[in-house]
Design a protein around this nucleic acid. Structure first.
Length: 335
DNA sequence: TGCCAGGCCCTCTTTAGGGCCTT
């Protein structure tokens, strides 16, 4: 098991129950400021504390590939299969027969099923008791979904509390040619103590499960998530024959930044993460383009962004998407 | 020979083109 480069943080405040978006942001921001203001509030823990020995111990169930067809980036998951997943979350059963469902029907069912989830949660007055909001970021070997690989992943549970962050390098088992961007070199990741994605995924899933509420959903938030982080995540899970849990939903903050620029005008020079950080006067110590640094930036930007746009948790949730609804279409769509 | 990222948004407009955003 390659776990040596993984780390968790212990934020020195107790966990608390989220009552509202404002409370949620305020508390999270407070924790983040407290811990990053003096850069001393986070202690890195030995990964063994979290019990990371299970990767080869068969503690986790690998699920069949359902996110990608062989030789294609298009999703192979059908709504029929998803309905099964909703019923038996831990035992996904897929058959080749699901491949034959009419495409139009599939699209309609996808929309219906997902909107049902959104409706259910959006109408739930105690939405915050069901949602875990995780800000995340990935560093990769490049921009190409097909060929490039994730080499670092970091995430922060905005609920705070013990072990609210997760960060690790990932061994892509290849040379890294864009070290000038993030400072992560081939030598740093191609080591026995750096987990490969197949080692990491079960650990990551167990970590997220430890953060999520019973019967709840996990809202993953990233900047440009829809066309960058999430497709990379989908491909990595697919390569490892593991399915992204059906209760994971994703929010892209890039469209939110575009909305802000409409009424803020030239106050926001662009919709990039650095521009947002500048607008909201967010400063985080650390190397730019390292995953946890960008996670902490976005974690501090998010409450300001939602405040500007007057978004509630329900609003944020309604803007979320499921990974299997991402269009893996070619440029100049040939569908 | 064809591929080389791709979804979204804006503009000189949508039967299109180019820039932005992510590494």
């Amino acid at each position: 098991m390659r776990t040596g480069s993984m780390s968790f943080s212990l934020v020195l405040v107790p966990r608390y129950r989220i009552h509202s978006l404002a409370n949620h942001w305020d508390e999270s921001l407070h924790n983040l400021n407290r811990n990053y203001g003096n850069n001393s509030g986070i202690r890195l823990l030995d990964s063994r504390i979290y019990g990371l020995q299970g990767g080869h111990g068969k503690k986790w169930t690998r699920r069949p590939v359902t996110t990608k067809r062989e030789g294609s980036n298009k999703t192979s998951r059908s709504p029929k299969s998803r309905s099964i997943e909703h019923e038996t979350l831990s035992e996904t059963i897929l058959t080749s027969a699901t491949e034959n469902v009419n495409k139009t029907e599939l699209g309609q069912l996808q929309e219906i099923q997902y909107s049902d989830i959104q409706k259910e949660l959006a109408q739930n007055k105690d939405l915050t008791s069901l949602l875990t909001i995780i800000v995340f970021d990935t560093e990769t070997t490049g921009f190409m979904r097909k060929g490039d690989r994730i080499i670092e992943i970091a995430l922060r549970d905005l609920q705070g509390g013990e072990n609210s962050t997760f960060q690790t390098l990932v061994n892509p088992q290849r040379y890294i040619l864009n070290s000038h961007v993030h400072g992560i070199t081939t030598q740093m990741v191609n080591k026995p103590d750096v987990p490969r994605m197949e080692d990491l995924i079960p650990i990551l899933m167990k970590y997220v499960r430890s953060r999520e509420k019973s019967g709840g959903y996990v809202l993953w938030v990233a900047h440009n998530a829809r066309t960058f982080d999430v497709p990379f995540l989908i491909n990595e899970f697919s390569r490892c024959s593991t399915e992204i849990p059906p209760n994971w939903l994703f929010v892209d903050t890039l469209p939110l930044a575009r909305e802000v620029i409409k009424f803020r005008g030239t106050e926001l020079s662009s919709t990039s993460l650095p521009a947002l950080a500048e607008l909201y006067k967010v400063k985080v110590d650390g190397s730019a383009h390292r995953a946890m640094v960008d996670v902490n930036k976005l974690a501090m930007i998010l409450p300001k962004l939602t405040f500007d746009l007057k978004l509630t948790i329900s609003d944020l949730f309604e803007r979320s998407f499921k990974p299997d609804l991402i269009n893996f279409r070619r440029k100049k769509n040939t569908d």
